[in-house]
Design a protein around this nucleic acid. Structure first.
Lengths: 340, 340
DNA sequence: AGGTTGCATGAATACGAATTCTCATTGTAT
DNA sequence: ATACAATGAGAATTCGTATTCATGCAACCT
């Protein structure tokens, strides 16, 4: 049987209200009584029931994260593992926990957001994987539900968001490849409509300054397998690119695989830059150059803002935060001989 | 303002109790009334408040998972990402959600388990990363709190657990290396006391049948960095092993790095077998042989059992389930020439 | 001393839904 | 026609905590 405030009250010969007050650290409880109550709590190992607390305070102290991934799609891409880890890291020590869900369809996603929101399972939400038309956002806004988007919101959309400077980062990555002497720099992106992909593509184009008409731009699904497949096709073309900006490290690993298969040598015959600076970049021969997103910062900012909103500590209009990223240069983008 | 059953009741001109009954699918509500209530619910987009529901039903419909990892330790090792993904996958579609926490010390872990348990934040727990003396288990048992351990419980401990056959798997892996002609087969394990590590070490020893006195056994922390460091030392020894069973794929990647550094060629000068069959095994040159744990099965079994317990659908004594694993042979353990 | 202020504490209530208790109505049996 | 069981639905209670309201006592002031 659970021990409740009622029980503690009886034991300490006080009212339940007083127990509650002691728990809340209310100053105006006589020291002697406070002691008695605290002693009773300790003796009976009392802990307040979060369920009752949630109902009463209208706070669950849970924040939600819903991923939309195919089965197995989480372990394929350490990006999300990193994201989750950073969130957990931030929450550790604070009185909040993470409620995590994964769905594998747009419909499922809409459904679960709806549920999360309306049933008040969580106090707020972190959104990721934004698409150009994000169905979730409008609904959340209408309900004035606390949320922060990690990613790029639709222009003109006044919401809280934290993002890295994808356009600039891709531009720098592309320029780096050009500086290294690569001439036919392509990009392997994701399907159009995925915001990160579109943004990075824009940066890529900006760096090329119109010198190429997307001749070497190619789209693939996330994950190394799909990227490998796409790269296999792309690299078989007679006039294949001699360098690629790849949307994501794991996709880049797929490209590495394809290149190996086709006997194309990295970095001399193919320069590569990925994104996310996953710890696997060090793993491949020579290392994979990659744009570091500074996820730790991004997540910290996002979570911090979310808690501010939840706890009504935020004043003013929704604001966007941009965290700058940095290019980590490794072997895959620095030719060791004069290129062919 | 939230819409409650009270509101719906008023709108449909019935009592709140009736609304609740309709929601619960209670048969004995007149069809006409049921319709009216359902219509009102739909019209006002009513969803029951999970907080109130939790308090009343004493069920939160959350299951908890607490990881004990250093900061960043989640993304270093896709094992946990895989674990989480599988759990989410299992839960998807069921009326349960995952409450995830990460701590970075034993003390923090004890604390949070205590909290989880006593505050009834979750309905049940999945335990991983068991150590020989697991402080969590006794407490959970005493409180008759639903939990399932993924891993090997202390012998004689009657608890629900799901595990793979670590001893056998390591034995098979070791024997495979011997069969391939390697003579000085070592093992890179984790610190003693970590159950998986101890179990696999036992299997390794069994395969060697006492032919070696742990001459080539070496311990390192999890993660590729620590493993790389350890391997660097191990492989510099004059009489170094010519093959290694490595506790974990990521540690094996560290070994690959060290070998490359020292100019030791895989698989001819060093055979390798890892564990977990992470999707990165395909990524390295030639591929890394690895023991596939069948995480999907393990997690499914564990979660299934947990829900059975939570929902009082389980009869009988706690039981242990062993899921068999299989060796996936790739290039790293199959010499291409006669070995030196 | 009488009245006011301050304050510690207990009593009562609210949070929203599920369930038990109660009662009125209908149907059935004698 | 009377008695009794069955049934559908409202009233009341419960879950455990936080908070407001009410009260009684002590200290203080004129």
């Amino acid at each position: 049987m659970r021990v409740t405030q009622q029980d503690i009250a009886r034991i300490a010969s006080v009212s339940q209200a007083t127990v509650s007050r002691v728990l809340a650290g209310d100053e105006k409880v006589e020291a002697a009584i406070r002691e008695r109550v605290i002693e009773a709590m300790r003796a009976h190992n009392y802990q307040p029931d979060v369920r009752a607390r949630s109902l009463r305070s209208q706070r669950t102290h849970l924040i939600g994260l819903v991923l939309n991934r195919p089965s197995g799609g989480l372990s394929d891409d350490p990006f999300f593992a990193g994201l989750i880890a950073e969130i957990l890291d931030f929450l550790n020590g604070r009185p909040y926990h993470l409620c995590l869900d994964m769905v594998n369809s747009e419909a499922g996603q809409t459904f679960i957001y709806d549920e999360m929101l309306r049933t008040r399972r969580v106090d707020g939400l972190i959104l990721v994987e934004s698409e150009a038309r994000d169905h979730r956002i409008l609904r959340l806004q209408m309900d004035r539900f606390p949320f922060v988007l990690i990613g790029n919101p639709m222009p003109g959309n006044e919401i809280h968001s934290v993002d890295n400077d994808n356009v600039l980062a891709a531009e720098i990555a592309t320029r780096h490849l050009l500086d290294q002497g690569y001439r036919r720099v392509g990009m392997l992106a994701a399907r159009p409509g995925v915001t990160v992909s579109d943004d990075r593509l824009a940066g890529y184009r900006r760096a090329l300054f119109g010198r190429q008409d997307d001749e070497y731009v190619c789209h693939a699904d996330f994950g190394s397998a799909a990227a490998r497949e796409a790269a296999r096709v792309l690299l078989r073309q007679p006039n294949r690119p001699d360098a690629l900006v790849v949307l994501d490290d794991f996709m880049a690993f797929g490209v590495v695989g394809a290149a190996r298969e086709l006997g194309i040598r990295i970095p001399n015959e193919l320069g590569l830059v990925g994104f996310n600076d996953s710890n696997l970049c060090e793993m491949i021969e020579g290392g994979l150059s990659s744009v570091s997103l500074n996820m730790s910062d991004i997540v910290r900012r996002a979570c911090d803002r979310l808690l501010q909103i939840i706890e009504n500590r935020y004043e003013g209009a929704p604001r966007r935060v941009v965290v700058s990223s940095s290019l980590v240069i490794r072997g895959s983008s620095v030719p060791t001989e004069v290129s062919a």
